[in-house]
Design a protein around this nucleic acid. Structure first.
Lengths: 182, 182
DNA sequence: ATGAGAAAGACAACATGTTGTTGGATGGAG
DNA sequence: CTCCATCCAACAACATGTTGTCTTTCTCAT
């Protein structure tokens, strides 16, 4: 047919996503995807390496691109932890079409880790400024708190966001600055 | 040949594990496994559903079985958070053959989550005793701190345990009870 | 004890499905 | 007209999951 490069690729991506919402990625075949998208199976390989590559490229597009995101840059430099967390939560909310699935039970547990790794170096450079602390401990602290943040964030999505963003941010504040367990 | 039930199954599991240590599970075939184990490909299906089933069964055997573990039960009832954490860390250390791979970069990101989910209900029942707190908040707090714990634990393994268990436990204590970031 | 029948272990062979790659057809932009 | 990107049909190679069969081991009634 006619169809520009991007249109075909996007059709394939959309067909993949429909399937991914319904079934385990391990059981999704190239044929299934292209049948649904209305293209020949061979066409798939023009745009993607394999089935997993589609998911990876979707995830890539969801990861924050800090080189272009001025907001995040200045946030990190000025350095208000609360504000940084709020920014991340808002980033998530703006992409909930994909994230509500990716973060669900049957989603991709690698994704939150990838996101985390993207953010860690930024926060790290900030923490290393007011130094005196063992760099190894900084790494552990970063991992500790980022895991906590993304754990809560993922949990929030898993439950279908039973509280508002504002309430969730307050909850996060309580968790970061006051120890419930004791 | 002869060979008892368990011997064959264990051979297949061992062959799988050798491959899993070296390559992505997506690229491991049944034939590869049984060639290495010295059995017919069909024999694989007597014991396992597919390649992923082998990993799942290995992971199952690594998860704590609290019905049989008296220690953990009493720990949770008596309820010293430090002691509980120490117990979990020791459980991990006693299975490092598998965990050092499962928790590595190329391991299975689902595994820490499964472990977490196994432990959460125990801690939850304990937290619900001294009540007054919103049950939803308890869930989030649990998820928050368990994610933090497993994040740090995983990080420790990823770095090849650059500090001793004792040092690591002290570090965890600092992280749980004193906020580094501020 | 022992021999018949049941169960378990392993395998070869098969039909079917999936993959990744070629080489060629089509059609629109320049 | 002729590139060039896009798309497809066909193929070889490989993977999957199932079946039927053969041999060995178990068991239990006599």
């Amino acid at each position: 047919m006619k169809a520009t490069h991007n249109f075909t690729k996007e059709s394939i991506q959309e067909a993949f996503w429909q399937l991914y919402c319904k079934k385990d990625i391990k059981k999704i075949t190239v044929k299934e995807i292209t049948d649904r998208a209305g293209y020949n199976r061979g066409t798939f390989y023009v745009y993607y390496k394999d089935v997993y590559d589609v998911l990876e490229q979707i995830e890539d597009s969801l990861l924050p691109d800090f080189h272009n995101e001025e907001k995040m840059k200045t946030l990190v430099e000025e350095g208000d932890l609360e504000a940084i967390i709020e920014f991340i939560v808002n980033e998530f909310n703006s992409q909930s079409k994909y994230l509500s699935v990716l973060l669900s039970e049957k989603g991709d547990p690698k994704f939150p880790n990838r996101y985390k790794e993207q953010i860690k170096p930024l926060l790290k450079s900030r923490m290393e400024l007011n130094d005196e602390v063992d760099p190894l401990k900084i790494d552990f602290a970063l991992e500790f708190f980022m895991s906590a943040l993304f754990g809560a964030l993922t949990h929030w999505y898993k439950l279908g966001q039973p509280i508002s963003t504002k309430e969730f941010l307050i909850l996060l504040h309580d968790l970061f600055f006051f120890n419930f367990i004791g």
